[in-house]
Design a protein around this nucleic acid. Sequence first.
DNA 1: TAGGCCATCTGGTCCT
DNA 2: AGGACCAGATGGCCTA
Length: 250
Amino acid sequence: MAKTEKEVEGQSDSVDTNNNTGKTENDSSSNSPTAASGGKYQLRPRSIQARRHSDSEWSLQDTLRHKPRPQPLSRYRRKTANARERYRMRQINTAFESLRGVLPSWVCSRRAAADMTKIATLRLASAYIRSLQDILDGNAPEDTCTWVISSILGEDSASQESKTKFQFQEYQPNLKVSSPDKIQHTAGDSQQDPDLVSLLCTSSDTGVFQDNLETFSYLTPMSESEAVALLLGSESNRGWSDVHHTPVVS
DNA sequence: TAGGCCATCTGGTCCT
DNA sequence: AGGACCAGATGGCCTA
């Protein structure tokens, strides 16, 4: 399992150069929360000692729980830890690629490929899963069922027709399509409309495809870790088998 | 040029 | 003790 030091050295590890940047724990902890207060983000002191002084929620239990600072990792162990971390992040990225792969292509194609960020992928997947759940629960319009199932099963004529509906919908966000020749105006009740077209594909004023999840009140906010946990929770998730069978580097 | 996204390094913590 | 996981920091790249 563990690589030899020679193997680790062979990787493109820039540990030396990074160490020379002077990025130390003391430097990090100097970024006190007060220095960044009032902004969008706040920096949290990295060291236990600094957090003990700055964190008002630091408790006696924390003091007892945290052990004295251990010795820094040896050069070899630091390199192997970096290698493991890179591998772990690669696995996460592979999982994201798989997730993008199981989203219907027309969902992803509404964005530029470079625009399918990790957070966008998670949000789209979350919305898509919720929409599928609505269909299972019988809460979605009939044509939405046909449209989504067609998109899952393949590029048949039904999905092509649905794509046409979608493309029309993209430029008429206040229109709800129930049939090709019957257009319903639904302005004003779009907030309650569970239609997947509206859910996933409503265009913004700028014409750029937005997530628009905030327009659906029943979509509760989800952190990235929660979303990943949710997505990884089921072994039977379609398209994830390749991730589970990723060979382990030994 | 500011801000977003990402890869990477790193230290802290928990678990086996 | 060592690995896994997490989060902070940093720098590169890209875009509006």
